[in-house]
Design a protein around this nucleic acid. Sequence first.
DNA 1: CTAAAAACAATTAAAATCAATCATAAAAAT
DNA 2: ATTTTTATGATTGATTTTAATTGTTTTTAG
Lengths: 249, 249
Amino acid sequence: MLEPERHQIILDALKTKSSVKLQELVELTNSSESTIRRDLIQLEQGKLLKRVHGGAARLQGKLQEPSMTEKSSKNLQSKRRIAQYAAGLVSEGDCIYLDAGSTIVEMIPFLPDNIVVVTNGLSHASELLEKNIKTFLIGGFAKPTTKALIGRGALDSLEHYRFDKCFMGVNGIHSQFGYTTPDPEEAMVKQLAISLSSEAYVVADESKFSEVAFSKITDLHQATIITNELDPDTKEQYHSKTNIKVVTS
Amino acid sequence: MLEPERHQIILDALKTKSSVKLQELVELTNSSESTIRRDLIQLEQGKLLKRVHGGAARLQGKLQEPSMTEKSSKNLQSKRRIAQYAAGLVSEGDCIYLDAGSTIVEMIPFLPDNIVVVTNGLSHASELLEKNIKTFLIGGFAKPTTKALIGRGALDSLEHYRFDKCFMGVNGIHSQFGYTTPDPEEAMVKQLAISLSSEAYVVADESKFSEVAFSKITDLHQATIITNELDPDTKEQYHSKTNIKVVTS
DNA sequence: CTAAAAACAATTAAAATCAATCATAAAAAT
DNA sequence: ATTTTTATGATTGATTTTAATTGTTTTTAG
């Protein structure tokens, strides 16, 4: 039996139970104890499971193979609904800015064709090209984690553009401080893009409202939040303290 | 049995299982072990599967989604050899420019880690990020066919950089006119990048020498061509008429 | 607390698989 | 028709994977 196949069997076994005995795996794979041990070491190094005395156990942060897909797909549905609503605000002929980020990318399938898009999202640009949308990318340093273009170069090339509308993602929305993003460099790009746009929209699903960690604030209250249902108390709270308009899809 | 047929059998086998033993493939195709090994090497280079000890496995990153078009592996081999040689010219600590294009992208796996890369290739940037290389993208209009960034915005952001070395692709090399690229907008970007670089290299496989269609010339003879073996006559012809240095890998 | 049992890591030798090379046969080019 | 190129299969020694064995550590039961 090939190594990838054994690894798959081991990981599959951990999808149903939260832990497996080494002996079970020996029988399941018709391999020796030594071989399974080596496999477990490899899989542990790849952070796919945790070795425990007598066998292996699922990882805490990564029990997502069954449930994370589920959760993220639920979250994705929510994101997609909001994104579709946001895309509906774009008119043919518009020149718009799309911020990097996983929520914004969901807008792309719903965008009209005859528009011009400027973005700082590396992966956004690829998707836009697939849809035959006229696409401009700003320059800058490519941030490894998010594939967003940021830094001095980003600001330089951004300031040559003007937008009818811009659509921004955020890491969190704070009832007192406004929109928050942990990376100051990214925040500066957002801020500039908003100031270059006639209308600014923040697209955020409800999970963003519970975020607590932040360090830098995109402090422009002239934008409109697009989100899904929010309980009226929260909504009122945000509006009164920050003057943010909240629109629900 | 013909090569394409074998390749299809191998790929089909991986559609049902997540891995196949080499011996199974030997029986399925009535070919020798050596032949299957060679097939697997080719298919792995075409990024259609992953070789593992004892056989081959599906690669899960891309479930047969993208360009299933197996690159003509003959031309690819040639490109890759030249690209590897070119990558060898890059020293740790260098700041280099990588032009968009299919030949240049093959350099990326061979580049050292501790360098800074500036590029106008959308797909290049993604690959560079995978390798954890510090990457800057210039801005500009994203050309749909090649995913290259061109135009006014590209020139604007490009001119803020300076490079130790730049590596350019071309569509053709003409014995009288020099390097040729059909798109004037793209040619301007190339030209500027070359002028911003201490050393300029043109990386081109032999197929580029037979190209005839061109419209705009990147008319800078200060670059060095990196290519594979060329018959001495051609080599001399190019050198005498264009003053282009030709280096073979 | 102690002893037996189970699980462990480390070492080893055998088997399987590998890369590299060579020779041959088929195909393509001249 | 002849040379060159290409694809294939066989053989070689080297490498990797595997399973069995060793002695050690951990768990469990009395």
